[in-house]
């Protein structure tokens, strides 16, 4: 298995109306934190964007630091009075959110 290509998280952004969606593909782990942060910081600063969605359909693995990054994002979104959705979590992401009790904190659909 070529770990170099399999461990990288690919991040891309789509915007529709007032919603910015950050699509994550691959392994969502600590290595991705800088790129993940810069992906959402620009959207938080944009007054036209009121909703942030994180598309987790392509997440093949996530660890506790990924949960940590989502918690940090949640704080920042609340500070800007915007809304946050975790959308289409992959099976493994959904299971991790379930174990971590994230449905109490996040809008997941």
């Amino acid at each position: 298995m070529n770990t170099a290509t399999n461990t990288k998280l690919h991040i891309h952004l789509t915007r529709l109306g007032d919603t910015a969606t950050i699509h994550l593909n691959g392994q969502f782990v600590f290595d991705a934190h800088r790129e993940f942060k810069s992906a959402y910081m620009n959207q938080l600063a944009d007054p036209e964007i009121t909703r942030i969605a994180i598309d987790l359909a392509g997440v093949r693995y996530l660890d506790s630091s990924a949960l940590g990054m989502l918690l940090v994002l949640r704080d920042r979104v609340l500070d800007c009075s915007k809304s946050l959705t975790l959308s289409q979590p992959s099976t493994i992401a959904a299971r991790t959110f379930e174990i971590a009790g994230f449905k109490e904190l996040f809008h997941i659909h």
């Binding site: 506790s64 630091s65 949960l67 940590g68 918690l71």
Partner: peptide, 8 residues
């Protein structure tokens, strides 16, 4: 602990 750090 800062936001994002926790203990399961």
């Amino acid at each position: 602990m800062p936001t994002g750090k926790f203990c399961a």
